[in-house]
Amino acid sequence: MGSLLSTVDTSLTHAVSTTHVHMATTIDVLPTALPGWTQLAAVGVGAISGAAFAARRGFDVVGVLVLSVATGLGGLLLRDTLLQRGTSIVITDGRYLIIAALAAVIGFFFAGLVDRLEPVVVVLDALALGFLAAAGANAALAIQLPPVAAVFIGAATAAGGLVLRDLLAGIAPAIMRPGVLIAAAAFIGALVFTLLVVYTGIPRGQAQVIVVVVVFAIRVLAVRLQWRTRPARDLTDRIWDRWLVKPKKPVLPPILEPEPIPPSSVSTFSLPPDWDDTATFTRPPHWRSNDDDERDPS
């Protein structure tokens, strides 16, 4: 029995080690060029917009609190859940929940003010979006996940809060519908961060600042120029026509331009001046009609 267990154990460690990434048990804190409160601020901005969203839709106290926490902390929570490196930072660091609760209070009592300050909220949201995209991608790269996974984690960190908010509010997530360009901006931000860190090797703090600027520019341009994402377009028929089926065109003789008629040779026709419009035609007796034979065989 003992030998059986030991063989099982060794082989199990083999099986497990193929799926594990052996790294430190905590996610590295981003060595950022930005001060440490920026991540808290990014979370707070998301939480305020979530709380205002809930207040506008008539949720009660608990609803506003839950949606505020979900919108603000959802992205980081999703990141830490997927990366499986111990308890999420939003729970171990008590400041995150306090910020979200404060945001809920603001959203509950001052939803009207938040709505009136919409341009400010849009600007702050745009800044937070790029920040969170970089933070997510950085955490994935820190535990040595492949770059593709880092891009995904970055986009999920930035947009996860919005998805969670809509799920809890009982509506289909808005960022997956055609409309405002948020998730695509987050995706581009995570992509830029990963490319910068992996291929140029510039410090991650600087890369994050660049990503914040890029995503902010995309978001502001998208709002100003009203860029919108589009639903799927079916190109099958077009490709089918273009490449797969080539109908044989019949070879037609070239169409010749008719020769222009010289004006001198154009015949003109005019009725005689004594033409009587009202005259009726009577057949002369020596003309024969077609049905004369049947009527009169003689």
Partner: peptide, 16 residues
Amino acid sequence: RDVLLQAGVPTFLVNP
């Protein structure tokens, strides 16, 4: 499955 099993990073992130 992977999150419930606490089995490390989900497979789809390890194998891109």
